[in-house]
Amino acid sequence: MNLHPDPVGERLRSVVRVRLREAVACRSGAGPRASEQVDESTRVAWSLLCELGVPAMDAPAEAGGLGLGLAASGAIAEELGRAGLAVPYLAGAFAADAAGVDGANADQSLLRDLVDGRIAVALAGFETPEPSVDATANTTVDNDGDLRLTGWLPMDRAVDEVAEAVLLPVRLPDDHSGLVLLDLSTLDLRPGPDPSGAAAVGVLDQTPCPAGRLLNRAPRTPGCPSGAVGRARIRQAAYLLGLARGALETGVRYATERRQFDRPLREFQSVAFRLASAHAEVEALRLAVAHAVWLADTDDSFGHPAAEALAQAAETASAITRMVVQVCGARGMTSHLPVQRYYVLCRREASRLGRPGQLWREAGRERLAAAGVAPAPV
């Protein structure tokens, strides 16, 4: 039973699901090595989404979008996760929100390019609550209004295969923060410490940034943000919901086809109970995400439901992908089964817009403040 009717989301899910099968097919069968197949599927998926006009669906009407809200973009994000695809859609929607909803001085031609899907965007630097620590530090403003950025960003090594720009948080003077859309070519990408090859470091050393690429600016305040950041958190929660659902479907399919002692693996209680429990967790997460989507599309105050939905999504997706890898055994840790891709994606995306502990603390403090209760000192 749905918490809230979602006819727009259901229609979009069916259309997007059919089109994404073409992208998923690019990484199946014999051919290039796994990393090249992943890159090709990403490029194909992004091209198909642009052909459907997906980047404009959630964008505000005044920016040239359709204004369908998170009911549309949340459904698209979930299907992307369910297919095990990582494309620039979520980052591009985040950037369009920042420029169109919260933005005051953003370049309008840049906004139009984002809405039309002409710029592929990646995210970097949102993993921690303070951007000055791991993202941008010592930001200075030139006399002509341009920015010069100094710091470093943890990034995906393969991001330059598809993305053309990166959206990052910056610390501004006068105790303000903002979001900057920077051309990827201006970053000095260096190998990161992760031996899996998933991480890299983007170094900024007095890197120039035009004033029009500062999408918004706002005072740094505690609490759970609404606006563009809150909406991005809800999309990310929907994406993680899709990853959890896709991994679980893969596990159920494997447990049905795999036989032990002349019985399907799913008939053993140790496996069946874990799959059933995971299904209940996915349904609980679906309701939490649907509730956050509904609040964001109908109310201006949705900061702490967005943080809670993302925290729950990160914990649920991490637990389910890990459990399915265990059910699939040694093959689940290799690229021979799709679950390995869900596990790797979840490991990377679960902390993309904040770690669960940080999000729970943010939401808890806001709930206590709303109830008039002073939080205990840390």
Rank of each mutant, 00 (worst) to 15 (best):
S14H: 11
D156N: 12
V159R: 08
D6N: 12
P7C: 11
A91C: 04
N216W: 10
T221D: 06
L248Q: 06
Q340K: 11
V289T: 06
M323V: 03
W46R: 02
R157T: 15
R27Y: 01
T186P: 00
A93W: 07
A200I: 03
A77I: 04
R171K: 12
R112L: 12
T334Q: 13
P208L: 06
E257C: 10
H336A: 15
D146H: 10
S41C: 07
R253A: 08
L345W: 08
V24Y: 00
Y89R: 00
V15M: 14
A255H: 04
R21E: 15
A98V: 06
A314I: 06
G92P: 01
E10C: 07
R190H: 06
P264T: 01
R157H: 14
G103H: 14
V373Y: 09
E161K: 13
R341G: 07
A238G: 03
D205Y: 09
L153F: 03
C224V: 04
A75C: 07
E257R: 15
V87P: 12
Q206G: 12
L214R: 03
P219R: 06
Y343F: 15
N216K: 11
D300C: 11
D107N: 11
P375T: 08
E10W: 05
A199K: 14
L85W: 10
L20V: 02
R367F: 04
P173Y: 01
G227W: 10
